[in-house]
Nucleic acid binder design. Structure first.
Length: 463
RNA sequence: GGCUGGGUGGCAGAGUGGCCAUGCUGCGGACUGCAACUCCGCCUACGCCGGUUCGAUUCCGACCCCAGCCUCCA
């Protein structure tokens, strides 16, 4: 039985989709104007694993992840670069796709863009005005009037009075209430714009997600996710807009991921303490990064550090060392009734507990190592479990030798030279010239390469 | 100030009212020409103070500390 922690009710609840066997999931993607950093990677890898596991459980999943491709920051950056906001957004969308793919993420089923949903956005704003949840200010901007929403704050457990008490000084606007937020913003000269009943302009932040969920998944759907920093105000405002406009409950389960930290501080653009996915991939293998991101629970904060990445790499090597020397080409089907599989599923059923699930994989690896020499059939069966379970979370899918010998990040790939030196050393060993053999091995150490003499064969891997 | 989440062994990180987490590192042993890998074994834990209980790291209360949100944010 799958249980998911729901932010709205602050509890783990048994997951029951609205339509038996089908799941609709909407995840807030990014506002695209720059490179993605590893914090983005963390969130979307979490949802990648959630999507993979839902499918493994047999659900027919529709996974939607949007792109917000029009917003003040995009316009500002495009102006600075001397390109159009469309060009900027398209350029970085491509880069994002590459980055996400290199981390082993499967693409979402649908990836809607705000600029392709303007009609739906306008329709929803019209509905909100008609139902008296929104109004047009004297400057032409259209606002959502928060005090009209009687349960505003239910997701983030805030109430309006407290929020107003803590509000920061802001420039004068013609909002009726300081909590009111923009639905439609009038265009200034030379800004991108779409025509609307209120004048040429663009959608405010928040409304695009309400419009896109409705367009693609309907008024109500199973899962809505995103980073925990979106809980307030973004998701709170989505709820306010959608439930008012649709007169219907919005998402049934809310999933929020924990923030990546650097030196115990949130990684963010404004603090400048971020590492882009490309930065990290220049130093570590993509699979190591993925494993690192899954090695803590998706809801907890995760501290970025190179030591943690190195430790993650060592852990992953353990899996591949266990799999090496096995006839992986003839792997049997994974036996889903195996105890390991059951333990893995129990862990994942408990709010996608990947650290616990990975612990099961290490137990499988140990069992493989024990049986490798004397029970090859058993070892191969266990290997099928390791590879099969690894696939569900997107790790341990490479050829072991490839993983263990591939160059890391910026390292030079010089396998031929390595193989030649190994032959030279083995000749020395045959001649019982231990001094020379050890000298050659010292060279390898300098190259950060570890040799292993096993069963009369020498293999190597990068340390 | 309000609202959330959290404080576990050298590090990372799960979890549980009484029994092994797991990984990385370190130490001892087996294996090895020597190593490496692997296997076997070992080490130091549950922020602090009370309470409930036969028994609490796990439940309750107070306190201390950390992070996130309350501005754009994954």
């Amino acid at each position: 039985m799958l249980k998911i922690y729901d932010t709205l009710t602050q509890s783990k609840r048994e997951f029951k989709p609205m339509v038996s066997g089908k799941v609709s999931m909407y995840v807030c993607g990014i506002t695209i104007y720059d490179h993605c950093h590893i914090g983005h990677g963390r969130t979307f890898i979490s949802f990648d694993v959630i999507a993979r596991y839902l499918r493994y459980k047999g659900y027919d999943l529709t996974y939607v992840r949007n792109i917000t491709d029009i917003d003040d920051k995009i316009i500002a950056r495009a102006n600075k670069n001397g390109e159009s906001s469309t060009e900027l957004a398209e350029r970085f969308t491509k880069i994002m796709h590459d980055d996400f793919a290199s981390l082993g993420m499967l693409p979402p089923d649908i990836e809607p863009k705000a600029t392709e949903s303007i009609d739906e956005i306008i329709e929803m704003i019209e509905a909100l005005i008609e139902k008296n949840f929104a109004y047009q200010g004297t400057n032409g901007d259209v606002y959502y009037h928060v005090p009209v929403c009687k349960d505003y704050g239910k997701l983030s457990k805030q109430n309006i009075e407290q929020l107003q008490a803590g509000e920061r000084v802001e420039v004068a606007t013609d909002k009726k209430n300081s909590m009111d937020f923009v639905l439609w913003k009038m265009a200034k000269p030379d800004e991108p714009k779409w025509s609307s009943p209120w004048g040429d302009g663009r959608p405010g932040w928040h409304i695009e997600c309400s419009a896109m969920t409705k367009k693609i998944l309907g008024n109500q759907f199973d899962i809505h996710g995103g980073g925990s920093d979106l809980q307030f105000p973004h998701h709170e405002n989505e709820i306010a807009q959608s439930e008012a406009a649709n007169e219907c409950c919005f998402a049934n389960t809310w999933i929020h991921t924990g923030m990546m930290q650097v030196d115990r501080e949130k990684m963010s653009k404004s603090l400048g303490n971020f590492f882009t996915i490309k930065d990290v991939l220049s130093k570590f293998r993509a699979e190591t990064v993925r494993y690192f991101l899954l090695s803590s629970h998706y809801r907890s904060q995760l501290n970025y550090s190179e030591d943690n990445l190195k430790s993650a790499n060592s852990g992953l090597e353990r899996f591949y060392v266990a799999l090496s020397d096995l006839d992986l080409a003839n792997l049997p089907e994974m036996d889903r009734s195996s105890d390991y599989v059951k333990r893995f599923e129990t862990a994942m059923d408990d709010d996608f507990n990947t650290p616990e699930a990975i612990a099961v994989l290490f137990d499988v690896a140990k069992a493989i190592n024990r049986s490798k020499d004397n029970e090859p059939t058993e070892a191969l069966k266990l290997a099928s479990v390791l590879v099969g379970l690894g696939e569900i979370i997107g790790i341990v899918q490479q050829d072991p030798q490839t993983f263990l010998t591939q160059a890391v990040g910026n390292e030079e790939q010089d396998n031929e030279k390595i193989e030649a030196l190994i032959i030279e050393r083995n000749q020395a060993r045959e001649d019982k010239n231990w001094t020379k053999a050890d000298e050659i091995r010292d060279k390898f150490v300098e190259m950060n390469i570890i040799l292993e003499d096993k069963n009369g064969k020498t293999t190597w891997r990068r340390g």
